[in-house]
Amino acid sequence: MDKLVEAHGRAIPLGRKNVDTDLIIPARWLKTITREGLGQGAFETLRTEPENIFDREEFTAAPILIAGDNFGCGSSREHAAWALLDMGIRAVIAPSFSDIFSGNAFKNGILTVVLPQDQVDRLLEVAATDPISIDLEHQTVTTPFQDRFTFEIDPFRKNCLMQGLDEVGLTLAREESITEHETRRAAQMPWLAKGNTNRHGETA
């Protein structure tokens, strides 16, 4: 994952609430076995509308997207995060996000910034004409007009994003704890340790 310290540039002022992952990337784009190239299918349904916001020249390769409540609801498809990343989006600002989407975004180096609706409204207004800056280290969103909004972020996520850490590698380093848990559980709850091998009476 590419590290993310700040995002600066034009922000696509989508504004819409309940943007579901089917809208971000329709199912027909899920038939890929790679992570690349999904930007082409991003917001495909909205992009069929004439003069849609995504195809405006000033928002080409914009690094930020601003949306309404419950962004990324619906399907767990990580393709939604991959599609945004492929479009060039590194941060999404909204009043709330679906749990699965924000996890997926973070694991791909996309920052999800939660701000109250009135601040989001102000940013939507600014974004129409001017750039926006997000500083992850200081947890701020600023505009050229002296707006300065602070946001909260889970410290673990912040650290991973800022350093571009590989979460699987971090967990593999906890091998000893995992094995200890596994051994203890296999003694206490042997049926859980048997998984799909119960079928033929094999032991795990």
Binding site: G103, N104, V168, T171, I178
Partner: peptide, 22 residues
């Protein structure tokens, strides 16, 4: 619960997930 593909990879490799309690 449902997970994304990075988490699928995490579970395949470690049989665990890093989670915040809901």
């Amino acid at each position: 619960f449902g997970i994304g593909t990075s988490e699928v990879e995490h579970v395949l490799a470690t049989q665990t997930l890093l989670l915040t309690q809901s």
